[in-house]
Write a protein that binds this DNA or RNA. Structure first.
Lengths: 245, 245
DNA sequence: TCAAACAAATAGTTTGACATTTATATGTCA
DNA sequence: TGACATATAAATGTCAAACTATTTGTTTGA
């Protein structure tokens, strides 16, 4: 019926006003907020209060603060990477385990292939995916394992991006980012890596042929497979695969 | 190659130490941090610096601060609701539209039904779903429309919870919460509502019979349908269905 | 021309004071 | 004794003024 009110704290009020200004577009990325002193005059509060508001806004992720002569609080571009990082940070405090992430990822990617991509994908996208696999193989030949890992994830991220659905892209990237840590701590064996390349190629081929349903199945089981391998290997190395991230 | 270092700011250091303490479990939910004065002595900094750290931690969502006699900074329980809220806040600053949310939701729920639920669901779960529909119908008869809406969403949230996968549960709830605002601004017509009840019942029946694939399809199209209705109605009322949330 | 010194602007921090809020203890009166 | 008012104490909330540290632009001098 009634909603609880809580007046208190001027810094909160300032935070809200700034957030709204950004939301409205009155403050655009790279815009500079007035200096702490000026903000104090504008809002009629002391520098201390302004600084507290700035700390909140900074933690919220909407501004960056630089020191020095041309320093100050600058509105941050809320790009994908920033949003993913923020969400990732929040999720780290929840009790999420690798198997949960893996399962979610497998399911989301299947939907990406089966439902979300068909109306969007172009031959150019397929070419880009193929290039990605080629690059990953090159990295593997050159023994650049972290680069290879990164490129491999790039394959899946590219798939997500084809959907042009920011919700899907973001959720997928959050999951991939949080998962990647586990991959980095497991040495990849040759058959494992080559199987990955083969399955990636198979997926692209199916996509080119318009066999989205089949591509989705291959992808689902590909991710389930790889994740199972990671879980097994992690257990051997007694890593905390089932503990929180 | 190299990773950027950025020392500066004692409050940052304090934030990190507190976060780590919480992560380690040295600080559990409902624990009280020392008072600002004491923290100042502990870390060897002034109260102002402590307060800035506290504002960051508060915005991060890991503490709540109460004023007054038994006041202070208390470690917050990072429950599902809190995590969902945090992520929702972040997502509000991204350029997400209702159709994106709806599509993502339809896909995720199909996967929930097809892939994630079958190994988990029990007859008791089905009973709970049926009860939910009954309750929603009761609300509808009593003309309690917001209650009905809330209960209807509860049906889908219950489905997600059956997976026992926190990643899925969280992502789903974030999407539902962000979507709900659009539903609230559209008057529901009788045929629309009754169709929803019918489809919910159909889904439960299919689940009872173990026809998960079919249940998934029904659910997918149910959500797609309802969302399309919302989009159309919103356009009539010239709501910002395609603007950011 | 280049480098060192300087100047200006801005965030980072400290200190000390006072205001406000809230739970609890204390006191007073019926 | 019980209920209500009042005082008290322990927090957070806010302010003001100064000092420090850092960054950047500008001037100066060899």
């Amino acid at each position: 019926m009634f909603t609880k009110i809580k007046q208190n704290r001027m810094s909160e009020d300032i935070v809200n006003q700034v957030l709204e200004a950004i939301s409205r577009g009155d403050l655009a990325p790279d815009d500079k907020l007035p200096s702490e002193k000026e903000l104090g005059d504008i809002f009629g509060v002391s520098r201390v209060t302004i600084r507290e508001a700035i700390r909140s806004l900074e933690q919220f992720g909407v501004i960056v603060v630089r020191q020095g002569s041309r320093g100050g609080a600058y509105v941050k571009k809320m790009d994908q990477e920033a949003v993913v990082n923020q969400i990732g940070n929040v999720l780290k405090m929840a009790n999420v385990t690798f198997p949960h992430l893996a399962m979610a990822r497998a399911s989301i990617e299947r939907e990406i292939l089966v439902e979300l991509i068909p109306s969007k994908i172009t031959p150019a996208d397929c070419d880009r995916l193929t290039q990605n696999i080629d690059l990953a193989e090159a990295h593997y030949r050159d023994r650049e394992s972290t680069e290879r890992l990164h490129t491999n994830f790039g394959f899946h991220t590219t798939l997500a991006r084809i959907t042009e659905n920011p919700v899907i892209i973001l959720m997928h990237k959050v999951i991939v980012d949080l998962s990647s840590h586990f991959f980095e701590n497991v040495e990849a064996t040759t058959p494992m890596v080559e199987k990955t390349f083969a399955q990636h190629r198979e997926i692209v081929e199916l996509l080119r042929k318009g066999q989205f349903q089949e591509a989705g199945e291959v992808c689902f089981h590909h991710i389930a497979d790889v994740s199972k391998t990671i879980v097994d290997k992690s257990k051997q190395q007694s890593l905390l695969v089932s503990r929180r991230i």
